[in-house]
Design a protein around this nucleic acid. Sequence first.
DNA 1: CGACACATTGACCAGACTCAAAGCTAGTGG
DNA 2: CCACTAGCTTTGAGTCTGGTCAATGTGTCG
Lengths: 247, 247
Amino acid sequence: MASKLLHGLYPFIRKLESVSRLSDEERRAIESLPVRVRTLSARQDIEREGDLATQCCVILEGWAYRYKFLSEGRRQIFSFHIAGDIPDLQSLHIPLMDHNLGTMTRATVAFIPHGSMHNLTNRFPGIAATLWRDTLIDAAIFREWLVAMGRRPAFEHLAHLLCELYLKQEAVGLAGDHRCPLPITQTDLADATGMTPVHINRVLRDMRGRGLITLHRHTLVVKAWDELIRASEFDATYLHLRKRAAG
Amino acid sequence: MASKLLHGLYPFIRKLESVSRLSDEERRAIESLPVRVRTLSARQDIEREGDLATQCCVILEGWAYRYKFLSEGRRQIFSFHIAGDIPDLQSLHIPLMDHNLGTMTRATVAFIPHGSMHNLTNRFPGIAATLWRDTLIDAAIFREWLVAMGRRPAFEHLAHLLCELYLKQEAVGLAGDHRCPLPITQTDLADATGMTPVHINRVLRDMRGRGLITLHRHTLVVKAWDELIRASEFDATYLHLRKRAAG
DNA sequence: CGACACATTGACCAGACTCAAAGCTAGTGG
DNA sequence: CCACTAGCTTTGAGTCTGGTCAATGTGTCG
């Protein structure tokens, strides 16, 4: 365990193991990938819409997010990413970026050339399948966000998102006890849910008032998990986690 | 060409070639897949949420769609599928269905066992890459739907969807001349866009009034393509078509 | 030709947005 | 170590896009 923890790509392996099983050989192959590790400050773009990507990145520490701009400053956020995620894995087969990827917080990121990734997936079909599966889970989360956007009222929508962000972190050991980091602003939550920051603020006040959560200093505390789950009709199936998080 | 047309899986090959390039050998391998072809009537489920899928299906003719129900009859549609699509390709790596797949119209569908698909992708990494790429484009479309849901007003949103549905069909030769089949009801459009059928009706009336489109007897005619594109800020990049459709 | 699903319209309503002002807070530089 | 500042959060008042409810028209298919 200690040796794993020491290796730079440990968060990545931990993430893949939350998605699928890895053999020792596969794990070693991943650990020996050539990576270039960099630390980026908060709110920096990693890839931009229109770029031709030549590498993938693994978040080792901190948060990243994917988003797109429309006219008049409208912004839509697609996803939040935590340690272990490869937010631009899709660029491996679609190099032309159709959205932006940036850091949300100060973050440590490992870059892996597409060539090395292709080499890895050719030698290990099992890893290819796991990575493919990961992109499919990504898509499943998009679908769930679509449901939330299209058919859930604001309260339910935001509650659903908070459940998801907590469980994603819990699944890789970054959260527990119904408490987790949430280093994003209310404006970010607004652009992720299709609302305005003002309305996010009001819904959060409502949740606080009902004793469901507190959200302060970038820490989310879920004080009534069962009720939050019920209020948002949350069903974790779409996250396709290998071990389902405790209720 | 004639021999291709005669083969049952021709729509599938045509679709894959709109997404990526196939070698002759790869094409032959796909053509020799063991398939079970069935014709289904309209509005029949192919897979249901909770099912463990053991096969994939290729739409050969007609339309299919993916969707999910929430409480109180709320429904969200995620995607519409036309001839050539494999709407449940994701089940290859995530057998547990987290949504429903059904026919929209009467449809001819080819079923391919997961075993045969895994065998195919193991023997032909190029096909695996193409299929993976296809699921990634699927995800790109979900992202674009998220933008539309979250940040586009109703008119722009619906216009965007119509552009997409036209181009998807044009890319595989099922549409041209800014005219295409659209065998879906206004209620379906509502559940795809997160609106109510009443509002869809009003927005369509508005589009008709402005001379942008006509939609009658399940046929969409775009009378002012450039203006529809402009009104919806449509940019086809996210469809990642090999040959960009003519403006 | 009858029935049923779909489309259309009107009147009214409400959830979420806009605009604007004040209060916090975390990070910066002196 | 404190003061400053920029960005974030909070709140109120008024507005508007899109929803609800309900009735009527239209088309399609057995």
